[in-house]
Simulated scan of single mutants.
Amino acid sequence: MKNLLKKLTSVCSPSGFEDELCQVIKTEITPYADEIKVDKLGNLHAIKNGSDNNITIMLAAHMDEIGVIVTDIEEGGYARFTRLGYIYGINLVASRLIFTNGAIGMININEKDTKVDKDLRNAYIDFGVPHKDDCPVKVGDVACFFGPSVELTNSRYMAKSIDDRIGCAIQIELLKRLKKTPHNIHVVFTTQEEFSGVGARTSAYKITPDIAIAIDIMLSGDMPESKNNPVSLGKGPVIKVKDIGTLIHLGVKNWLIDTAIANDIPYQLGISDDYTDAMTMQSTKAGSAVGQICIPCRHIHTPAEIIDLTDAEHAVNLLVTMLSNDVPENLR
């Protein structure tokens, strides 16, 4: 999975600009799906037909990453910008960016300032050009963080956009390893989760799943001064019970936990104040029974997110085991 994650995180794919990553993933999964579709919003649907057509299960991992969008070009060739998805100001100064057109720049703030304003109005992008006419981008162009992926240890990995390329990698591996299922499985690589969640919302509306599971990341609690968060890297995927927009379905929660225990798959339970595609899937149309499987991650929404790849491997094993077998009676 390490090489796959490196390939996925190397792509710049901010919200609304997921086409390049979509093509990379499509190439990876084509031999393993019964049907593949890309819808009008750019969501990539991979379908595995089951032997029992009674249950439809949707999985969702988002292809987009946080980024910036240019709002103005100033004299000297500097670009002003705003968020595309939520970026913390503290992480911006001296960060490198790469635009979807290949242009590279770095972020700084006005000389008299000591921190980035909440609205980012004192931050700018420097391309090293002498004049406004030499600026390589225009209003509306988008960029993401730029930097190398780094293998820190045998299992610890650092890169930009691990949120949510690790979820995409898990779903790719699931498609490769899931040989047979009694269910109709819709594995969806969604768009614009960081911006509005519209990709998961429209996909769930189209699929009308009985059960929907979001595959994403969750802030790890094993950092200095972290409080009220027992989640750690390397102790298994997180079955996220609650976040700002979702309470997971009790039946799905028990299915996840019971499967993990029965198959000696390590797992953790977690609660967070962020959100995933589960929020929109749960409330679309008549609703669905939702769950969340999240990979513990340090330094979320920075150019240097860190995970333990063993947590992702356990997540794949959990999903393959679950989806190879019948769902519990209370979810039928």
Rank of each mutant, 00 (worst) to 15 (best):
A286R: 15
T100H: 02
H301L: 03
Y267W: 10
P14A: 02
T321C: 11
K160L: 00
K240Q: 13
R96Y: 02
Q171I: 13
I217H: 08
E20Q: 14
S226E: 02
A212W: 12
E111C: 07
S203V: 07
F17R: 04
C144M: 04
V142K: 03
I107D: 02
D274A: 15
H183G: 14
C294M: 14
E74P: 12
A289P: 11
E75Y: 11
H301I: 01
S155I: 05
G140F: 08
L174Y: 09
P328G: 06
P296Q: 07
D134S: 11
D119M: 14
N108Q: 08
V116S: 01
V187H: 10
P230V: 01
G167A: 12
N229S: 05
N110W: 10
R83P: 04
K235Y: 11
E193D: 12
A260C: 08
N122C: 11
D277C: 12
E20F: 00
Q292H: 08
T208A: 14
H183Y: 15
K138P: 05
D34N: 12
A159K: 04
L152W: 04
D222R: 01
Y88V: 03
I166L: 12
P136M: 05
E74C: 12
V137T: 03
Y86I: 07
A315W: 08
E35Y: 03
D274F: 14
G76T: 07
P148Q: 02
D243W: 02
A304I: 01
N43S: 04
N184A: 08
T310L: 14
K235T: 03
C22R: 15
M223S: 03
S149L: 08
R201H: 11
K253C: 07
I162G: 11
E65C: 07
G102I: 06
L318R: 10
D133G: 08
Q171T: 10
A79P: 12
T276I: 09
S220V: 03
N317F: 02
Y267N: 07
K48L: 05
D308V: 08
